[in-house]
Design a binder for these strands. Structure first.
Length: 431
RNA sequence: GUGGCCGUAGCUCAGUUGGUCAGAGCGCCGGGUUGUGAUCCCGGAGGCCGCGGGUUCGAACCCCGUCGGUCACCCCA
């Protein structure tokens, strides 16, 4: 009995990742782990939900994410929890709780939840990869973190993306800048779009990032943060840019770059795909958050990190035609037309000897079994028909590449395949 | 959350101002004379046309609602 009112589909804004698409996810993860671990970052797991205060205090009450996008709920014990809307605050909370030695360099892969109107590239449950580096205030660390993101994207084959960077100053220079910006905008209050006219005092920075023409024009001559940094912030930012230049990491300065979380200080950056038509083209972003550890109850500890969205990276890869799905690969596929017992035992033997092997079930026709063998990407098909069964042999037929079909004794099957594979560079089975 | 567009077999889609229109390609399954896939040929299974109401003699095609997708805004990964 089917029940159409019970829609058998994932909730709005969520999605399943089936094979073989999932192989891309695995590849993405493996590549990321390889790159950041070579830079000294260690994999870190934190809970998928936290006390809601971790996000309220960390990301900021005024942010859209906290204000209207959190999956907040009360558990049976009356605790108010929230599914993590991003990765940094939980990581910093874990740091404050455990106080690992500095510098603490960690990476994560996690789902993130935000209640937004779904769109292509924007999901209510999406997945992020990221790193956090706590301890040093050294601008060279900024360069390292940004460079890791840039290098990772390039290693996937992506090239059509733009890195934008800005500095948002610190407690020393930000108040003065905000004052200047506010008074500048106040003078042009009537030119701003409705929304930002109302929010001018609450969050003047937002107007800089507005896409409407009205705000665009009104803010064209607005003072840029980069020109109003204090001495320390200015020197820091200069060193970051020099480092990126030295490492050949291309970027553009963007004084309109305003990130949505309250915890950012000094360096902020965003990677946007130029291959994606959609407005949802941000594939990664991050920045320094020198005050966040304190906000979450820890000792003054600078930090910087980035997060990137797996779904959007994949969309960008599709748009650029890179990092495609690897075809399935199997060492052997057993075709058995004698009832299946040979297939049963042969696959077990092959697997026990480190080879990958599969077979058909339900006693299908030889033609059907061969089609499955072909689809499996198997290098060899092991055929067991009446003749082989009677003589205790197996016919070994290469499905891909050169070679003739040969008949070998059952006892020699594993050895024959292993030695054949040893002749092919890079295809030797795991010991 | 606001506004626009869309929702037909597993996938991509065609369906004439509502009346044999429930279809195609791909995929899947089976067969092509008794042991060999990816090509080719033949055949087959699968949709109450997202769901629920309404209008009508009659709706996949019209109206309302709802769910989902998508685009822009918002915001971000």
């Amino acid at each position: 009995m089917s029940d159409k009112s019970l829609a058998a589909r994932a909730p709005s804004g969520t999605h399943d990742v089936l094979w073989p698409e999932s192989t891309r996810w695995e590849g993405l993860l493996a590549r990321f782990a390889d790159q950041v671990e070579r830079a000294g970052y260690g994999m870190t797991h934190t809970p998928i939900f936290e006390d809601v205060k971790v996000f309220r205090r960390g990301i900021g009450e005024g942010s859209d994410v906290v204000g209207k996008e959190m999956y907040e709920f009360e558990d049976r014990g009356g605790r108010t929890l929230a599914l993590r809307p991003e990765g940094t605050a939980p990581m910093v909370r874990a740091f404050v709780q455990h106080r690992p030695p500095l510098p603490w360099k960690a990476w994560y892969a996690t789902p993130a939840f935000r209640y937004e109107r779904p769109q292509a590239g924007r999901y209510r449950q999406h997945h992020q990869l990221g790193v956090e580096a706590l301890g040093p205030s050294d601008p060279d660390l900024d360069v390292e973190v940004i460079g890791l993101a840039d290098g990772y994207f390039r290693s996937l084959g992506l090239s059509q993306f733009t890195l934008r960077i800005n500095s948002m100053g610190d407690d020393t220079c930000r108040p003065a800048y905000l004052e200047q910006l506010t008074s500048y905008l106040a003078g042009r209050r009537s030119e701003l779009c409705d929304e930002h006219r109302d929010r001018l005092e609450a969050n003047p920075l937002r107007a800089l990032d507005c896409k409407r023409d009205a705000c665009r024009q009104a803010t064209d001559g607005a003072p840029g943060f980069a020109d109003h940094l204090c001495e320390d912030c200015s020197a820091h930012f200069a060193r970051v840019r020099a480092g990126l230049d030295a490492q050949g990491v291309p970027y553009v300065l963007d004084h309109r770059l305003v990130r949505g979380f309250d915890y950012y200080t000094r360096t902020t950056f965003e990677f946007g795909s130029d291959a994606l038509e959609s407005a949802q083209n941000g594939i990664g972003g991050g920045g320094r958050y020198d005050g966040l550890v304190e906000m979450l109850g820890g000792p003054p500890t600078p930090g910087i990190g980035f997060g990137m969205g797996i779904e959007r990276i994949l969309l960008a890869c599709d748009a650029e035609g890179v990092f495609g799905i690897d075809p399935p690969v199997l060492d052997a596929f057993v075709v058995d037309t004698t009832g299946g017992t040979s297939a049963r035992d042969l696959t077990a033997t092959l697997r026990a000897n480190g080879l990958s092997a599969d077979r058909a079930f339900d006693d299908r026709s030889m033609k059907a079994q061969f089609k499955l063998a072909d689809r499996s990407g198997a290098r060899w098909v092991l055929i067991v028909g009446p003749d082989e069964a009677a003589s205790g042999t197996v016919s070994l037929r290469p499905l891909r590449g050169a070679g003739d079909q040969q008949t070998v004794a059952v006892a020699d099957v594993v050895g024959t395949i292993q030695s054949a594979m040893a002749d092919i560079p890079g295809e030797a089975p795991a010991p």
